[in-house]
């Protein structure tokens, strides 16, 4: 049992961290909070990849002429670029949230849903942005 734990503990904790992120994304209605949850989820996936790359007794993948056992550099490359792409896409998501706030004056999912229902029913006067669009 202890052996199984020592073999797999890293993956298991990372999975728990992923679930925290997933929970935030599903359960919270605030769009900024959802993006924070997505970030937590994303960072945990990065940890999972890097855990896979770890070599017991190895060193960082930089050639010094001494050791011959390195951690797997390929996941490092993938995650390195993924981090920077992640921040760029997060910025894009936050920009969309800012536009939603400016147009509808709310970033809560349920209120946006109410507005959507209002649009479906044709209650134009309930929509804050509609007045500006009509002008």
């Amino acid at each position: 049992m202890l052996e199984l734990f020592l073999d797999k503990y890293n993956y298991w904790i990372v999975i728990v961290l992923m679930l925290f992120g997933l929970y935030i994304v599903i359960s919270r209605g605030n769009l900024v909070k959802k993006l924070v949850g997505l970030n937590v989820f994303q960072t945990s996936v990065f940890l999972f990849y890097i855990s896979l790359a770890k070599a017991e007794g190895g060193t960082a993948p930089i050639l010094t002429g001494k050791t011959e056992l390195f951690s797997n550099p390929l996941p490092h490359v993938l995650i390195l670029t993924a981090i920077v792409v992640g921040i760029a896409t997060t910025a894009l998501g936050l920009a969309l949230v800012v536009r939603i706030q400016e147009t509808y004056n709310t970033i809560e999912e349920d209120e946006l849903e109410d507005l959507n229902v209002a649009v479906m029913k044709g209650e134009q006067d309930r929509i804050p942005g509609a007045e500006g669009e009509a002008r």
Partner: peptide, 27 residues
């Protein structure tokens, strides 16, 4: 600790630096 120094470097600069500033800006 997992020997991914390049990744750690990027995460420290991006995650702890830029993304916090962006979150605060959006907030």
């Amino acid at each position: 600790t997992l020997d991914a120094v390049d990744v750690a470097f990027t995460e420290a600069a991006v995650g702890a630096g830029i993304s916090t500033v962006l979150m605060l800006g959006a907030m």
